[in-house]
Design a protein around this nucleic acid. Structure first.
Lengths: 243, 243
DNA sequence: AGTAATTTGTGCGTATGTATG
DNA sequence: CCATACATACGCACAAATTAC
């Protein structure tokens, strides 16, 4: 019957903003009922009655939760439990990068540091978990990179797929989503420093070196290959800082 | 002044929800005027006039941005540029952990994986950047841990300070905030599996081993010390999964 | 196919609480 | 203590999107 809480709390207590109270109630409702992503939530009017708040307050609370991807709102359909992606991290970091960036790019440099550290540490672990299918997929992706680079075209999506594929065998959702998130931040913030076509050929070669190191099962070589993969981007950042 | 955009866009185009449009405008306004955290934004009514939207739409947009810490609202005072912290990441991950957790705790395990990988990779780099003051601070924090552990008390805050101190010399804000964020997620989600007093003594010893490895300037030893530091938590998670 | 019902989106007015001076 | 400016909350009416009949 979509009962959220029997407590009236109307006029007596004032712990904080109304919307925060409502947002907390909605989160508790999801936890208490063990709802999973995609499950429907009560309608806005039902939520109003349940928590004893106006529709404006409920809507603001829902918008906060939707920004965190805790709930997902579909116009004319209803409100549902969200998938709790890291879109909020991407939004926040991207904006920080754009604001602090333009000439500076120190935020971008920090993102590169984190990406490199995660890949160096985790890909080394992933080596032992890779099977032939994974290695073939990685190699095919680099083939595609080289093909596109030879045509002078960029290969953003292939690059994204490669780095996700590298982390896939770990079976860790959080790592995959962090990889995706940091990749997106870099893809959005970095275009300000343009990549030259010859850089792309080099980048494709660096990915090939990573695949080779993986195939050889050599962790140390893999670490240096990953470090060299990020070298061009670091150089671009340094160049931008100098100017 | 406070002119955000002259475009009316009223009635003709409908790309998406109104609040999304308004949120984008506000972000563009911050970027265009190169505002820094703490700087004031136009009042709600001024924003309404500037973008040609109602109070409701503006308020919902502001609430979304405040959830991402892109803006900060102070009741009765005004709206200001936020500090773009990673609170949104903490909120989202914490809720995911609480929802998926209780018995499972696989999200918590993923967080531990990421923390360990980052610390192993970055602390090894930080070794060369540490000065005597840092080493003394780290040692003093472990002293405090041992003191509290001997009294049977917990030392959450000291632990937090320790892991931040370890990353401090890198001079990378993002890494510090990620460290803080993941620590908070673990601190909020983990209490469901209770820590025994004897575990705390062991944990204090593991931190001592980390400091010793840092003092010795031995990266390999540091990696194993960090791995052993997380061993008790992993054991607790495994114990919870078994039951 | 189309109409009605349901649900979220938007706009507006007003009253209240809160911080600043 | 008062006055001003601002955010907060509430309620209603209507628009737009989706679903179901």
């Amino acid at each position: 019957m979509t009962t959220i809480d029997a407590t009236p709390l109307r006029g007596t207590e004032r712990p904080g903003p109304r919307r925060q109270e409502v947002a907390t109630r909605i989160k508790e409702y999801i936890l208490r009922n063990r709802l999973k992503p995609g499950n429907p939530l009560p309608t806005e009017v039902e939520l109003c009655e349940a928590v004893g708040a106006s529709r404006s307050s409920v809507r603001e609370a829902v918008k906060i939760l939707s920004a965190l991807d805790i709930v997902e709102v579909r116009h004319g359909h209803g409100t549902f439990v969200g998938r709790m992606s890291l879109n909020a991290l991407v939004e926040s970091l991207t904006f920080r990068g754009l604001l602090s960036g333009e000439e500076d790019h120190h935020v971008l440099g920090q993102v590169v540091d984190v990406r490199q550290t995660l890949e160096q540490g985790l890909a080394a672990e992933a080596i032992g978990l890779l099977d032939d299918a994974h290695r073939a997929d990685l190699s095919a992706l680099v083939d595609e990179m080289e093909r596109l680079a030879a045509q002078g075209r960029d290969f953003l999506e292939v690059d994204r797929a490669f780095h996700l594929k590298l982390m896939e065998p770990l079976g860790n959702d959080l790592i995959l989503q962090l990889t995706e998130a940091f990749w997106q931040v870099q893809a959005i913030v970095a275009p300000t420093l343009r990549t030259e076509p010859e850089d792309r050929v080099i980048t494709a070669q660096r990915h090939r070196a990573i695949v080779d190191a993986v195939a050889a099962g050599d962790p140390a070589r893999l670490r240096t290959a990953i470090a060299e993969h990020y070298a061009p981007i670091r150089a671009s950042i340094a160049r931008a800082v100098r100017s």
